[in-house]
Design a protein around this nucleic acid. Structure first.
Length: 417
RNA sequence: CGGGGCGUCGUAUACCGGUAGUACGCUUGGUUUGGGACCAAGUAGACCCAGUUCGAUUCUGGGCGCCCCGACCA
């Protein structure tokens, strides 16, 4: 994409009403636009990043047997009344609205009820199980206080996966597989080393659930990380009793602030019983399906990456989720030969399937470099009189600034796939 | 929901009960051209509603919106 065609621009200063680093940088670089508190639009660059995160999640969830669907964000109260979750006391973040005829309607906060109900149409026998169904879906949550930029929004996309199993063992096996998939996902998007699987409260469903928490000072949660064993515990269940169960003691833990980037938890038969999702087992006995749910917010992951990996000059995207693989920057000084050479390279990259943002704007070097640093594409190629005189192209890594001079064939080899 | 702060050109800021200034951006012209250039001329602004006042962007009240701390986070 030619940068001169991009409708967004970078800004020197962050808006005064944004304090969170993720929002400041993402707005300055033109990735997102704030519509209102807790609601952000994704602009061309931001959408590409979010879509890349979604792609990574989709690949890993498909790999463990997930089937993707897309449900509706409008929800009928009837199903929620069956599970007792329509009342504000049960879910206090409901956005509720009305139909023209006066009937009530909910905007999705989550999808256990409608999906469980949907599956009653298709699951009748033990032969129909297990099944794993997920989606990337808008969620609306009427948070009392939206905050931290794109980390806690009132409207956001969530990957929500639901598991449907026959037995506790079968469920547990998948649960662990999903935890492994989550590890791969967080590693691929660049926050694997700082992300821990954390014991957390299971709410009303089970004794524990598992959260995936990324250690970061911008986090809202407090977790305790065991120095040697790979154990972490959320503050909410950090009790002597729990630690005793785990065979560890408090003095072995370190307190850290963290961002909850994902969670997985057992649902048991709460929803299958409430909504009538049962199957006939081998003996013909009606049995409720054992369920689990598994969430990741791609937008929150994006914000976490920015919080964690950016530097003084701007964002530093990991390769997997960067909006483009290459930022091609021409420093022409009005020299049309340089323009022609940069155009040629742009076509070369495109012909080889390399995603490239081409800064073809008529701007000075300083401004282009500053913008390039801010936008944070992993590899920068600079074409200028200087590079042309050496018969090669200047290639700089955003992450550490290392620069090498390379030729056409090196470029293609290095940046392909 | 409790507490605190704040609403001024597109962005960031200043001043003021009596003509609203600066920087960036943007437009035009010129000089520049490897780390956010320079000169000149332009462009564009007081969240809304009431009240006080000869006069309100400024003071008072209400509304709306935004941010922070806490609580909350199925």
């Amino acid at each position: 994409m030619r940068q001169s065609h991009l409708f967004t621009k970078t800004r020197r200063e962050a808006p005064k009403d944004e304090v969170a680093k993720n929002a400041q940088l993402l707005i300055r670089a033109g990735y997102i636009h704030k519509e209102m508190a807790g609601a952000y639009s994704f602009l061309p660059l931001g959408l590409r990043v979010r879509d890349n995160i979604i792609r990574v999640i989709r690949e890993e969830i498909n790999a463990i047997g997930g089937q993707e669907i897309k449900m509706t964000a409008l929800q009928s109260p009837a199903l929620w009344k069956k599970s007792g979750r329509w009342e504000d006391g049960a879910i206090d973040v409901w956005f509720k609205t009305q139909l023209k005829d006066g009937g009530e309607l909910g905007l999705a906060t989550t999808h256990e009820e409608p999906l469980t109900s949907l599956l009653t149409e298709y699951i009748q026998s033990y032969k129909d199980l297990p099944k794993y169904v997920y989606q990337f879906q808008l969620k609306f949550r009427n948070e009392l206080r939206a905050k931290s930029g794109i980390m806690r929004c009132r409207e956001f996309v969530m990957k929500d996966l639901y598991s449907f199993n026959r037995t506790e063992e079968e469920f547990r096996e998948f649960y662990e597989k999903c935890a492994e998939a989550y590890k791969k996902i967080f590693a691929r998007v660049g926050i694997g080393e700082k992300t821990h699987r954390v014991f957390a409260s299971g709410g009303s469903f089970s004794k524990f659930s598992d959260e995936f928490q990324t250690i970061c000072d911008a986090g809202e949660d407090i977790i305790y990380v065991h120095k040697e064993k790979n154990i972490a515990v959320n503050k909410e269940v950090y009790t002597d009793e729990v630690l005793k169960d785990l065979g560890v003691s408090k003095d072995e833990f370190e307190e850290k602030k963290a961002i909850e980037v994902g969670n997985i938890f057992p649902l048991g038969t709460k929803y299958s019983e409430a909504l009538g999702l049962t199957y006939k087992d081998e003996k013909g006995v009606d049995t409720p399906v054992i369920m689990g749910s598994y969430g990741i917010g791609p937008g929150r992951v994006m914000g976490t990456v920015v919080e964690l990996l950016s530097d003084a000059k701007g964002i530093v995207w990991p390769k997997e989720i960067a909006p483009f693989a290459v930022h091609l920057v021409s420093i022409t000084g009005g020299n049309q030969d340089v323009v022609a050479e940069a155009d040629r390279l742009y076509e070369l990259l495109r012909e080889n399937g390399i995603e490239v943002l081409y800064d073809d704007r008529d701007a000075r070097a300083g401004e282009k470099f500053a913008d390039s640093d801010l936008i944070g594409i992993p590899t920068r190629l600079v074409v200028s009189e200087k590079s042309m005189s050496q018969g090669s192209i200047e290639c700089t890594a955003r992450v550490d600034g290392t620069t090498t001079m390379i030729g056409d064939s090196d470029i293609v080899a290095r940046l392909s796939k």
